[in-house]
Write a protein that binds this DNA or RNA. Structure first.
Lengths: 223, 223
DNA sequence: ATTATCTATAGATCTATAGATAATGC
DNA sequence: ATTATCTATAGATCTATAGATAATGC
């Protein structure tokens, strides 16, 4: 593998494990056992590495969120989209953590990320439309659908931060698992409950149960 | 005013304006025209300042989120709680931005913040219960109410990050206003629409309209 | 010849402390 | 006497580059 690609991969790993803020170009070079000079030969600075990582993330999500508009969507489609999105969030989990700082440091990233968000919001709306056509959820006013989609996006992108901050108080070491992350799907499906058609109510509730947090009881209030 | 208090206030201002990550103890001292040594006489380090600020934030929110359980809640109560919470978020807006890093750097803060989150989630549930007693929203299964409350919390605490990242792409300088922030109330009320009693549907929709984002159209998808 | 890599280092911070000096409160 | 403040600085990073050296591709 080329050094340039190694740098990207190692950076992603280190960022995910330790947080972007805690990882310097020195750390990345040391981790790869290359010289800092070598790293700077391939990238002008840390921002450039992050931007490359973002482009991969973007590509991944865009790939999974191609919503067909020539056919109605079924429950399996929804499951697929949710699973894919949370897989993506997991693989690039450092990204949303320091998002504001990253966007402030790199105008390119800022512009691209904004467009990316809008594409995701559009995709969520398309999914709602497709599910309506498929008889899973009832039709909604476009303005309500837009506001709902935004709420879905807010829950999806911030579920991990919630887990990391409200979760395991004492045991810092206990890292999150992908399974825990996917409990976010439970929360997303919660948003959709009121809009389900009668015939899909039970199937969706059953699906939702699969993601229900199986926690020691005191995890968060009332669950 | 005592220097110690000045340091706390100045830090809060600088953190809110520039982000905690971009503000060092040197910056704080320079801003106050005191020596770094003087700052370190009053605080052991930056974490200690942040912890003090958190205690204030906590006190403020706890004060506003005292939910009476001896009487039903009305729509005005809900408005008050929402306004208060968003005011609090605004005054301490740096806090949620770098939350994960802050909690990782300070075990005290980590433990306290976790308890704080749980108190907030409890308060949101109490508000739902009170509104149910007041005939504003219909009764819900406790498990659904818990999941809904969590979604409300996720939307509230992350609305600002959304605005900052998905909003104004090019004009970095354009800072957020409290008014924009309060459009988050529109999103929160969106979550509650399906659970409103018939007689409160119209009043809540009217209230919600007041917070509707009045944006140039292309702001975010479909709005 | 060009590309990749290393060594060495300048320059910029930042944190945190030691030790001196000034101000304040009995 | 005690509290508050300042000056000066050690020590630890980090970023980014210059310039030398090694490896690779025609």
């Amino acid at each position: 593998m080329k050094t340039r690609d190694k740098i990207i991969l190692a950076s992603l790993d280190l960022f995910n494990e330790q947080g972007e803020r805690n990882v310097t170009t020195n750390h990345i070079a040391a981790y790869l056992a290359i010289s800092p000079g070598n790293l700077y030969y391939h990238f002008r600075n840390k921002s450039d590495i992050i931007y490359e990582i973002f482009l991969e993330y973007e590509k991944l999500v865009d790939y999974y969120l191609q919503i067909p508009d020539d056919r109605p969507l079924r429950l399996e489609d929804l499951t697929f989209y949710l699973e894919s999105v949370f897989d993506g969030l997991w693989s690039y989990r450092f990204f949303h953590r320091d998002l504001e700082f990253l966007l402030d440091s790199d105008p390119r990233l800022r512009i691209d990320y904004r467009a990316f968000t809008n594409r995701c919001l559009e995709a969520i709306q398309k999914i709602f439309e497709g599910l309506t056509a498929g008889g899973v959820i009832v039709a909604q006013d476009p303005s309500l659908r837009a506001a709902m989609s935004l709420n879905v996006w807010l829950v999806i992108t911030n579920w991990m931060a919630f887990l990391k901050t409200a979760h395991g108080a004492v045991d810092l070491s206990s890292n999150l698992s992908l399974t825990e992350l996917k409990q976010g799907i439970y929360q997303v499906l919660t948003l959709e409950i009121p809009y389900l058609t009668p015939e899909y109510r039970e199937p969706v509730m059953t699906l939702r149960e699969k993601y229900r947090p199986a926690l020691p009881g005191d995890e968060w209030v009332g669950v």
